[in-house]
Amino acid sequence: MKADITLTVNGEAVRETVEPRTSLADLLRDNLRLTGTHLGCEMGACGACLVMLDGVAVHACLVLAVQADGQKVETIEGLNDSGLIKDLQETFHDRNALQCGFCTNGMLMSAYALLAGNSDPSRDEIRDALSGNYCRCTGYEAIVDAISAAADHRLNKAKGAQ
C-alpha cells in the first residue's frame, strides 16, 4: 500500500511512489539522491536535515514524504543553484565556519530563514536561531561570525541601493 505523491523539489516536478512511513529526508536522499540533506539524529534534535518546505525551514526527518505531497521543497542543492545563499556561502568560506561539513546544510538553512525575517540580528539572536543546529567541530563562533557578516553585507548593499 504505497502512495503516489507529487511535489516540487528545487523547482522540478517530482512524482514518486512511497511507503507511508518514508520520511521526506529518505525520499530526498534515497529516491532523489539529493544527499546534501543529512541525517544526524532522525528525531528533530540536530538540524542536519533542515529543508525549506513551502518557505518554512523544517526537519525533513520529521516530515513524512506523503505530507509533502503537493508542496514545494527547497534543499541545499536548490538554494545553491538559485544563488540565494551565495553571500552566506562566501562568508562561511571566508570565516571557515565549517569543518567536517555535515551540519553545514542545516546551518545554512537556519541562517537563510533567520535573515529572511530579521535583517539585522544581534549575535545573541543568531545564537538563538541556531539553537536547533548541532555542530561538533567548530564551537559555533565562526558560524555566528559568518552569519553576522552576511547580514552586514546585505544591510550595506541595501543602504548603497538607497
Binding site: 539529493l34 543529512h38 542543492e77 545553491n80 568560506h93 571557515n96 553545514t104 546544510n105
Partner: peptide, 15 residues
C-alpha cells in the same frame, strides 16, 4: 581558505 569547504557549502559533500 579551505577549497574542500566549497563542496560542503554547495551540498556536494561525499560521505
Amino acid at each position: 581558505r579551505r577549497e574542500n569547504a566549497l563542496r560542503h557549502l554547495a551540498g556536494r559533500g561525499r560521505f
